[in-house]
Amino acid sequence: MTTEAGSIYAKPVTPRIVVRPALASVVLHGVLLLVLTANWSDTSRDVIKVKPVPKVINARLVDASEFKPKPKAQPKPAAKPKPVAKPAAKPKPKPKPKPKPKPKPKPKPTPKPAPQKKPEPAPQPKAEPEKPRISQQELAALARADLARVVAQEQAAAQAAVTSAEMAASYAALIQQTVINYWSRPPSARNGMETELSIQLIPTGEVVSVSVIRSSGNSAFDRSAINAVEKAGSFPELQSLPAREFEKTFRRFRLLFRPEDLRY
């Protein structure tokens, strides 16, 4: 390069044609990068902490005859929603969890299901190793039926107003409730242990894959988490989700098991 007299700097050189394809390449890669890293979701990527919905509302009248000690108790669920739940005398008094109709969980203080520590009202006349209880399937079915019914109503009534976030939250609550009903923690479980699972569904709601992304370090605890999902098996209510919402949120999602209700 030659310099003119008086300037110490090289004069700009007209770029050669060969630079253009390179620039295009850079720009397109940049666009690609932008597209890949941009946050396209409507909400933040944060965990949708679908908190357990308050359990005092919409209590269901539980017929005491459901809890008579029978070898394989399969009581019929009471279909009539009554305002007061009868306190049934059973060894594990747990108020049956009922999800709130509204998808947005209100910040109410959440009464956790009463741990089975209350003294029994009367000494049991005999040993009852088989606890009189609604089977897991029945319980899950009850929860899902109720919520599904309400969710369907909600959808029909105000479809336009329902944002994607609300829809995701309501179906997520359903999944959450179902998994809770199937999750039996082993005695070695402790509050704060964390197992994260990756779940894959198909549009029918069936679970096609469960895998541990992050282990708690306790194999019995990890196994209990996987078992909860496997026992649930499928979430057929998701069939009523519009395909776009399903693909966006529920084709693949995560479950984080972190108990807070254990003794310690």
Binding site: V50, K51, S164, A168, N181, S184, A228, R254, L255
Partner: peptide, 14 residues
């Protein structure tokens, strides 16, 4: 990437 990454927390059991 046009997908919301959903993580549902399970903090209780039966």
């Amino acid at each position: 990437v046009a997908r919301a990454d959903l993580t549902i927390e399970i903090t209780q059991g039966s």
